[in-house]
C-alpha cells in the first residue's frame, strides 16, 4: 500500500514539473491560433460585405467606426444580448449541443495547420487525414441541429446540406489524394516543402479548380447555398436558432471558409513559400506570404458569391457525382501513373 502511494506521489510530482510546463505552452499556442482566428472571422464578415458592396456599386457598412471597421463587434454585441429561444417540442440537449459541436470542430482543425516552417500546434504524420476526418464530422452539427429543432424547414435544410456535403467530400478526397501522391507524404509541412521547385497549382490546375468548387459546396456557400435557400427554406438548418447558438453556427461557417482557403493555399499555392526563392521575394516573412495567398482565395469566395446565381438541387448533384467524381478519379490514376513513371526513370 505504501508503495502504491509513493508511486502516485512520484507521478504527480513529475506531472507538476514537466507536464504542467508542457500544458502551459500548449494552451499559449492554442490561444495564439484561436484569438487571431476569431478576429479574422469577425473581419471576414466585414470584408465580405465591403467587397460585395463594391461589386454592386454600394458603400457597404460605414457608420460604426471609421470605414465601418467596428461593425463586426457591433453585430456580435447585438447577438450576445438577444434571448436564446428554444422551440416548444425541441430536444433541448441536442438543440444546444449542435452549435457547440459545430464550433468546436471548426476550431479543432486548426491544430495541424502550419502557418510557417515548423509553426503549427501539432505536427502529426497524418495531418491531411486529420483535417479530412474532422471536416467529415462537421456534417453532424447540421443534421443534429435540423433534427433537434423539430421544424420542417430546419429538417429539410439539414438533409439537403448533409447530402451536399457528403457528395462533394468524395471528390474533395480524390483531389487530396492527388496532392498526397505528388508530395509523397500526408504531413502538411512536407506537402508544402515538396512545392519548393514549383507549386502544385501548375501541374494540377484542374484539380485546383475542382478543389475550389468543392470547397464552395462544402462550406455551403454561393453558388451552392441551397441549404439556406431563403426563398424556399427560409434559412435552412438554423431557422430556429437565435442569439449565441446562432452566432456559433455563423462563426463556425466562416471559420470553415478560412480553413478551406488555408487548405487551398497549403495544397496548391505552396503554403508559406514565396513564389520565387530569390532576393526581393524572400524579404517578406513566411507569414506574410501565407496570409496574402489566403486572402486572395477568400476574395475568390466572396467574388463568386457576388457573381453567380444559385444552382438547382439536381444540377448540384449531377455536377458532383457525374462530372467531378469521374474526372477526379481519372486524374488520380493518371497522376499515380505519372509519379511511378518519374520514379522509375529516376528523375524524382
Amino acid at each position: 500500500m505504501k508503495n502504491f502511494f509513493s508511486f502516485f506521489y512520484q507521478e504527480i510530482q513529475s506531472f507538476c514539473g514537466r507536464d504542467l510546463l508542457f500544458f502551459g505552452e500548449m494552451i499559449f499556442k492554442i490561444l495564439m491560433v484561436i484569438l487571431p482566428l476569431l478576429l479574422g472571422v469577425a473581419f471576414l464578415t466585414l470584408f465580405e460585405r465591403k467587397v460585395i458592396a463594391a461589386i454592386q456599386l454600394r458603400r457597404g457598412p460605414n457608420v460604426v467606426g471609421p470605414f465601418g471597421i467596428l461593425q463586426p463587434f457591433a453585430d456580435g454585441l447585438k447577438l450576445l444580448h438577444k434571448e436564446i429561444i428554444i422551440p416548444h417540442r425541441a430536444n433541448k440537449f441536442l438543440f444546444l449541443l449542435a452549435p457547440i459541436f459545430t464550433f468546436t470542430l471548426a476550431l479543432s482543425v486548426w491544430a495541424v495547420i502550419p502557418f510557417g516552417f515548423k509553426q503549427s500546434i501539432s505536427n502529426i504524420n497524418v495531418g491531411v487525414l486529420y483535417v479530412f476526418a474532422v471536416s467529415s464530422l462537421s456534417v453532424y452539427g447540421l443534421i443534429i441541429a435540423g433534427w433537434a429543432s423539430q421544424s420542417r424547414y430546419a429538417f429539410l435544410g439539414a438533409l439537403r446540406s448533409a447530402a451536399q456535403m457528403i457528395s462533394y467530400e468524395v471528390s474533395l478526397g480524390f483531389v487530396i489524394v492527388t496532392v498526397v501522391l505528388c508530395a509523397g507524404s500526408m504531413n502538411l509541412q512536407e506537402i508544402v516543402l515538396a512545392q519548393q521547385k514549383f507549386w502544385f497549382v501548375v501541374p494540377l490546375f484542374p484539380m485546383f479548380f475542382i478543389f475550389m468548387v468543392s470547397a464552395f459546396a462544402e462550406t455551403n456557400r454561393a453558388p451552392f447555398d441551397l441549404p439556406e435557400a431563403e426563398t424556399e427554406l427560409v434559412s435552412g438548418y438554423n431557422v430556429e436558432y437565435s442569439s449565441m447558438p446562432f452566432a456559433l453556427f455563423f462563426l463556425g461557417e466562416y471559420a470553415n471558409m478560412i480553413l478551406m482557403s488555408v487548405l487551398g493555399t497549403i495544397f496548391f499555392l505552396g503554403g508559406w513559400l514565396p513564389p520565387f526563392e530569390c532576393r526581393p521575394f524572400t524579404w517578406l516573412p513566411d507569414g506574410a506570404w501565407f496570409g496574402m495567398k489566403v486572402l486572395i482565395l477568400l476574395f475568390v469566395f466572396v467574388w463568386v458569391r457576388a457573381t453567380f446565381p444559385r444552382y438547382r438541387y439536381d444540377q448540384l448533384m449531377r455536377l458532383g457525382w457525374k462530372f467531378f467524381l469521374p474526372f477526379s478519379l481519372i486524374w488520380v490514376v493518371l497522376t499515380a501513373a505519372f509519379v511511378v513513371f518519374l520514379k522509375e526513370s529516376g528523375s524524382l
Binding site: 487525414l129 486529420y130 479530412f132 476526418a133 467529415s136 464530422l137 453532424y140 443534421i143 429538417f155
Partner: peptide, 25 residues
C-alpha cells in the same frame, strides 16, 4: 496507430454512421 484512428473516424463516423442517422431520422 494514428492512421487507423483517422481512417476509423472517416469511414465509420464520417460515412457509415451518417447513413444510419439518415435512415433512422
Amino acid at each position: 496507430s494514428e492512421l487507423l484512428a483517422m481512417i476509423f473516424v472517416i469511414v465509420y463516423v464520417g460515412a457509415v454512421a451518417v447513413l444510419f442517422l439518415f435512415v433512422v431520422m
